[in-house]
Design a protein around this nucleic acid. Structure first.
Ligand code: DGT
Ligand code: MG
Ligand code: MG
Ligand code: ZN
Length: 579
DNA sequence: GCCGTTTTCGGCCCGACTGTTTTCAGTCG
């Protein structure tokens, strides 16, 4: 996402917050939030788009398009500035307190002159003044006081890898109970999002066992406290601070419930609207006939999609990004799976910062059934990673060739490098050296805070080096830790398509770079992708699953992914990139 | 504010849990 997109999306989110507190029409607010989401997910810079292009976006109408153009031309949106004047500056921050919504914030502001977190804290010292307000009782005020301490946690997200491990534990624990017929994780985790806000767990069981199952859940070792708990749903906070939502549903509604709980919200809403337009109604319990209220489908997800006139939509696609119309037209992609991957093209050895020897690395790749493994250690600028200078690289190539010869007939071992893309787009090795490598992954590691336009030029320059095959982790982001660069991804993709080289989806769960939306834009433009684990340690090959999920979210088919090529096709492609 | 093989106006998903409510509003999933 380009810098401008980020700024405009933030403005729309801010406007939505203010409008909520001012009790504006809720559909107007939803529309504004949707516009923000659409702009955030866009691969290209909105400032390069015409008014007409903007209008073509789903969820962007005249009002939004005008505002975007206004921002691009003047650097601000007057309506935004006007709205900000309507309420105290510190007020929207109160919305981050769990359980506190716009209605209560407005009440606190109007009835108790609360204008910020600070003034709320002060007012809570004499709660009588607050509990006397109509609509606020002692319990609500106590809850606000308690939840103030979770304001930091609000909106916090976790890496897919970390959440996945936790979810597997909770699902296994729930399956321990004989009353539990089925248990699975759902939500953004099942959809394979790069980060998740919580862990959503669905359990199928006879409702009469609900109390026992709930008790078991809240008694599990990592659970610190219960947030809400009823007959069908319970939310807890773990000692680590992550929220776990449990939903209990009877086995005959498992399909409908899994669909609901997998989401996304936007996908659910679309499906429910579609059901209505077909004379049906969809909830987490069933798809029913609107008139007779008779159940049409509920047992499996496939049943429900079918009854809605849709092909089965894989969870990774359920984001309201066109999957429903594609499913209606039988045009969903045949998504890549881990079984389609036959090569690892980005891996390190102890020559730089890996923990494996060349021989161990090749052995692990062979065990996975791969036909090709590329040895791509760091280049000389990566001093902290023991990057190889020219003479060490020359020796390294010889060492790799020795293992290649040992492994002949088993696996193809490529001598390569992960060459650093320096801040100006030049590469860390000379072309005369690069041309002796079988494969070159070029990646940015430093100067990742540079502006979007500088980053765009930098990456394009690397793409246009005639010896490069793959751009590794193109933005350099580290999830929850580092934003990475924000180049205009459409420009990067265009350059990669012209050269016929691949952009990487780095599968490491801290990176997942390219991200899903950018990878999807790449595929739509006919750009090749690579899914690489960037292996440093023996277990790193297991990161592949996260890269696959990201690729599936990008609607990737095997033909889009160079790691899915046959050995011959891969060799041909590697050659085709070179002069 | 957006949108249209029923619509250019009048809709916009549906349900669980909590608190303050004697019948529902607010918040969240
Ligand atoms: N129909 C409907 N379903 C919703 C709504 N909000 C949430 N859901 C469903 C779809 C979500 O994927 C699922 C779990 O809710 P979460 O708030 O945990 O969202 P999700 O896991 O998608 O994202 P997250 O990473 O947790 O922020 O519940 C809603 O407003 N309407
Ligand atoms: Mg979730
Ligand atoms: Mg949840
Ligand atoms: Zn690497």
């Amino acid at each position: 996402m380009a810098d401008t997109n980020k700024q405009i999306a933030a403005i729309f989110d801010q406007m939505a917050d203010v409008l909520q507190i001012l009790d504006a029409n809720r559909f107007r607010i939803i529309a504004m939030q949707k516009a923000s989401r659409v702009i955030k997910e866009l691969p290209n810079d909105v400032s390069t788009m015409s008014h007409k292009d903007l209008l073509a976006l789903d969820g962007v109408g005249k009002g939004t398009a005008d505002k975007i153009v206004e921002f691009c031309e003047t650097g601000q949106i007057v309506e935004h500035k006007e709205l900000l004047k309507e309420i105290p500056k510190g007020l929207p921050a109160l919305l981050d307190i769990p359980g506190l919504g716009a209605k209560t914030v407005a009440l606190l502001w109007n009835e108790a002159n609360i204008v910020s977190i600070k003034s709320l804290e002060k007012a809570l010292k004499k709660p009588e003044t607050l509990t006397s307000i109509k609509g606020l009782g002692q319990k609500k005020i106590e809850a606000i006081a308690k939840n103030l301490s979770f304001i930091e946690q609000a909106g916090k997200r976790y890496t897919l890898g970390r959440a996945h491990l936790k979810a597997v534990y909770f699902v296994a624990q729930m399956r321990q109970l004989p009353e539990v017929a089925q248990a699975a994780f759902a939500g953004s985790l099942r959809r394979g999002r790069d980060t998740v806000g919580d862990i959503d767990i669905l359990v199928a069981a006879d409702p009469k066992h609900s109390a026992k199952i709930t008790k078991h859940f809240v008694s599990l070792e990592p659970v610190k406290e219960t947030i809400v708990s009823g007959k069908t749903k319970t939310s807890v906070r773990t000692k680590g601070g992550i929220q776990i939502d449990l939903r209990i549903i009877s086995p005959d509604a498992y399909g409908a419930a899994l669909m609901y709980f997998t989401g996304s919200k936007e996908h659910n809403v679309r499906l429910r609207e579609r059901a209505l337009s077909m004379g049906m109604s969809l909830s987490e319990y069933a798809l029913t006939n609107k008139k007779t209220e008779k159940v049409i489908a509920s047992e499996t997800e496939a049943d429900v999609y079918k009854a809605l006139g849709l092909d089965f939509i894989p969870p990774e696609l359920r984001e309201d990004r066109g999957e429903i119309s594609a499913a209606e037209a039988h045009k969903l992609p045949k998504l890549v799976t881990d079984r389609d991957i036959h090569a690892e093209l980005h891996a390190h050895t102890h020559a730089s910062d890996g923990l494996l020897s060349i021989r161990e690395l090749a052995g692990l790749a062979y065990d996975r059934g791969f036909h090709t493994i590329a040895v791509t250690d760091h280049s000389k600028s990566q001093v902290q990673a023991h990057g190889l200078d020219e003479s060490r690289l020359e020796q390294h190539i010889i060492d790799v060739h020795a293992v290649r010869d040992e492994m002949t007939g088993k696996i193809n071992v490529l001598a390569g490098a992960e060459v650093d893309i320096l801040s100006d787009g030049k590469l860390d090795y000379s072309n005369s050296l690069l041309k002796h490598l079988d494969i070159v992954v070029a990646s940015p590691h430093v100067a990742l805070a540079q502006t979007g336009s500088t980053a765009t030029k930098r990456i394009i320059k690397a793409i246009n080096n005639p010896y490069v095959h793959i751009i590794g982790h193109p933005t350099g982001r580290l999830l929850m830790r580092r934003e990475g660069m924000s180049p205009d991804m459409s420009e990067i993709i265009k350059a990669a398509v012209e050269r016929g080289i691949a952009l990487e989806i780095n599968a490491n769960h801290h990176r997942l770079d390219l991200r899903d939306t950018h990878a999807r834009a790449a595929i739509e433009a006919g750009c090749l992708l690579a899914i690489n684990t960037d292996t440093h340690r023996p277990n790193d090959f297991n990161e592949l699953q996260y890269g696959i999920l990201t690729a599936r979210r990008a609607w990737a088919e095997p033909k889009n992914i160079v790691n899915c090529f046959t050995e011959a096709k891969l060799q041909k492609w590697l050659k085709s990139c070179r002069p």
